[in-house]
């Protein structure tokens, strides 16, 4: 069954790979409350369908998203990254994480097709993606500075 595949572990492993390779930051799972994400936050979301359907999201505070985009672009000052760059970067982070998840799932569940990323920039974004399917969430600590929340909502396709 899907539960036994350890979806959460796959999501965390995929995110770790993306953060280490492209963002040059270490992440570890944390139980910290996500007060960091309250207030202005950015959410990058990718939907997928195929052997499994659902969506994967990463949500973090605006300063965290800025740091991520600065690291990805190799820029040292926050003034040099535009809001568009920051949103774009978070969309690409979600995109790369789901790409790794897809690779892991291909061996067990089957193929999934992934969408182009959507990014939401707003206040008090609630990351409840629905309730008719399985939802796994994992909070990660980024270099002891920020907390981001990863979530994946999925169900096995009836097709």
């Amino acid at each position: 069954m899907i539960e036994q595949l350890g979806i959460k572990e796959i999501v965390l492993e995929s995110a770790k790979e993306v953060f280490e390779t492209m963002i040059f930051m270490d992440i570890t799972e944390t139980a910290e409350p996500d007060s960091d994400i309250e207030g202005w936050a950015i959410l990058g979301l990718i939907t997928f369908r195929g052997a499994m359907e659902g969506c994967l999201a990463i949500c973090c505070s605006t300063p965290c998203a800025q740091t991520i985009s600065m690291n990805m672009l190799g820029i040292d000052s926050a003034e040099q990254v535009s809001e568009a760059d920051t949103c774009d970067a978070i969309g690409e982070v979600a995109n790369m994480i789901v790409g790794r998840v897809k690779k892991h799932l291909a061996e067990t569940v089957g193929n999934i097709e992934i969408s182009i990323p959507s990014v939401v920039n707003g206040r008090e974004i609630k990351n409840n993606l629905g309730n008719d399917a399985e939802l796994v969430t994992a909070k990660v600590n980024i270099e002891d500075k920020y907390v981001a929340k990863l979530s994946m909502l999925y169900r096995k396709s009836s097709k």
């Binding site: 790979e17 993306v18 390779t21 492209m22 690409e92 995109n95 790369m96 789901v98 790409g99 790794r100 897809k102 690779k103 291909a106 193929n111 992934i114």
Partner: peptide
């Protein structure tokens, strides 16, 4: 970000010369 062998094979057959997977 897509990196299934099936996709790589098909795009190479269409005329691509290589494949780099994101993250890189």
């Amino acid at each position: 970000t897509e990196s299934s062998q099936e996709l790589i094979d098909s795009v190479i057959a269409d005329g691509a010369n290589g494949f780099i997977c994101k993250p890189f």
